[in-house]
């Protein structure tokens, strides 16, 4: 069987819905055992999600068997692209992690500079432009909107 986005998505949501169904008794105290209570809606929705995910898997398997999985496109991961995505996520997380320590303004300036390096930008004007933008955003939020930035 080919690993298509439907198979991977189906498996992911089967896992999520089973997890939700398992944690419902622990996470939601039932106010009454008869009739509808706080557990009912999440339980019905998680069950619907499980049914749809299973149906997605079965449907995909049936189609692959019928067509001999010739026309199915396998879920391909472009590693070069995904590594860039992972690196950018790391950059965002690092930005969030250092902000409380060095403050919003300096963290934003550092993040902007590192982002431009990430995009291999060598034009100095781009760096200057973003530094000014960081200062403007900081000024607008802190002094005009009166938001207490870290």
């Amino acid at each position: 069987m080919k690993m298509t986005s439907n198979i991977l998505g189906g498996l992911l949501f089967v896992g999520i819905s089973l997890f939700i169904l398992l944690v419902i008794p622990e996470q939601i105290q039932a106010s009454s055992q008869v009739g509808i209570n706080a557990q009912s809606f999440p339980r019905w929705i998680a069950t619907l999600m499980l049914v749809c995910s299973v149906f997605l898997l079965v449907n995909e398997a049936r189609l692959q068997r019928k067509n001999g999985s010739i026309n199915m496109s396998t879920f391909n991961v472009d590693f070069k692209k995904e590594i860039r995505a992972v690196l950018f996520i790391v950059l965002i997380v690092a930005y969030a992690a250092v902000t409380p320590f060095i403050g919003f303004l300096f963290a934003s300036m550092t993040f902007s500079a590192l982002s431009l390096l990430f995009f291999s930008i060598t034009n100095f004007k781009f760096y200057m432009f973003l530094m000014v933008c960081c200062a403007v955003v900081y000024y607008v939020f802190k002094f005009l909107l009166l938001v207490q930035l870290p």
Partner: peptide
């Protein structure tokens, strides 16, 4: 307008906007 300029700006806006809601990281 080049995307290399917009992407970090969007993230900075996201951070400032998100923080402004409850003032928490």
């Amino acid at each position: 307008v080049d995307f290399s300029l917009l992407t970090p700006l969007i993230v900075i806006f996201c951070f400032a906007g998100t923080f402004s809601i409850n003032n928490t990281m």
